[in-house]
């Protein structure tokens, strides 16, 4: 088990390194840089920019240098003293900006995962055990709706309901908008997870060991919880890993609609204005969190399922 953990932890290092290089490279792919974007914006407003001043800024930010020099500057700062660089657009250290936004994002993601589990778990079990019952059809239909409806539409709908029916203000961040965000973000995941749990559980319920356990005289409910459910739980844990990136992706629109101060909208604007250190750092941090999430889900799976734990040693 320890060697399993150690190996997985070691694998993380090259993964994160590769991600950092790739994300930095992708940010630099569009022609131009932050300054050209700034000049375009200023010229659109009818102002002129002094070329010498521009050159000065360019050399100060190190924008003209070669890719590997820029990358090294950025990554060495992060590794050495957690200095993520300066955001051009906000004119503040990236670290400060992230400190403002990241906690809310992580809280939102965590709450969404919990919401997803709490909703999907009982519904999934119900619709598997009572396959083809009315309740199963209702759950399945709602699941399809949840999967099919775009997030922002649901967000608008919920906000409208909150505003018109309950007279709640949704313009500023408050518990209600937070709850709406959780509901909106969790719906698609819940629906997906219900489908997975139902299918998995149906597969497991037909396995010979279920009949064999029944033949021992085990009561149905204990049998269900002890045997097939534990196997069918696997997707719950494997989702932890990849939930984060998909949440941040989906969150951009929802957070914009609901006006939540999370990382998503920040990332979007940083990418638009080619604010490279900010964008690069956000992507890097999200990737690291994702990699850690994957590790956690691997460990949880190994804990849950002896086959994973005892067979990987080979």
């Amino acid at each position: 088990m320890l060697s399993f953990l150690g190996r997985r932890a070691l694998y993380m290092i090259p993964t994160v390194f590769l991600i950092s290089v790739v994300s930095f490279a992708i940010i630099q792919l569009p022609p131009g840089d932050y300054l050209t974007a700034l000049v375009t914006r200023l010229e659109a407003q009818g102002e002129t920019v002094d070329q010498t001043q521009l050159e000065g800024l360019r050399s100060r930010y190190g924008l003209g240098e070669a890719f590997h020099v820029q990358y090294w500057k950025w990554i060495s700062g992060i590794v050495a003293d957690l200095d993520f660089g300066q955001s051009f657009e906000w004119n503040r250290p990236v670290a400060d900006l992230l400190a403002d936004r990241l906690p809310l994002t992580i809280a939102l993601a965590g709450a969404t995962v919990l919401f997803t589990w709490l909703m999907a778990f009982p519904i999934g079990i119900y619709s598997a055990v009572k396959q083809y019952s009315v309740g199963d059809y209702v759950a399945t239909t709602l699941g399809f709706l949840g999967l099919a409806m775009p997030n922002f539409l649901l967000a608008l709908l919920l906000m409208w309901i909150a505003f018109s029916t309950f007279g709640l203000s949704v313009g500023r961040p408050n518990p209600v908008t937070f709850a709406i965000a959780i509901g909106v973000l969790g719906t698609a995941g819940t629906a997906g997870l219900i489908r997975i749990l139902r299918a998995n559980l149906l597969d497991e319920l037909r396995k010979p060991y279920v009949v064999a356990a029944r033949a021992q005289g085990l009561p149905e409910r204990r049998l269900l919880v002890k045997y097939p459910l534990r196997v069918a739980m696997n997707p719950f844990f494997s989702t932890v890993g990849w939930l984060l990136p998909s949440l941040v992706g989906g969150e951009v629109i929802v957070a914009t609609v609901i006006n939540l101060n999370t990382v998503g909208p920040l990332l979007l604007s940083a990418l638009q204005s080619q604010d490279m250190y900010l964008a690069g750092s956000i992507i890097l941090i999200l990737s690291v969190l994702t990699v850690i999430g994957t590790l956690i889900s691997d460990v949880a799976l190994a804990w849950l399922d002896p086959r994973v734990r005892l067979r990987t040693g080979r």
Binding site: P208, Y209, A212, R214, G217, R307
Partner: peptide, 22 residues
């Protein structure tokens, strides 16, 4: 249920699949 496993025992075809892997 009181008869299953108590008064009548049953053995199945695929021994591996008839025991829970968990």
């Amino acid at each position: 249920r009181n008869i299953r496993g108590n008064q009548i025992g049953m053995v199945f075809q695929e021994p591996m699949a008839s025991l829970s892997p968990m």
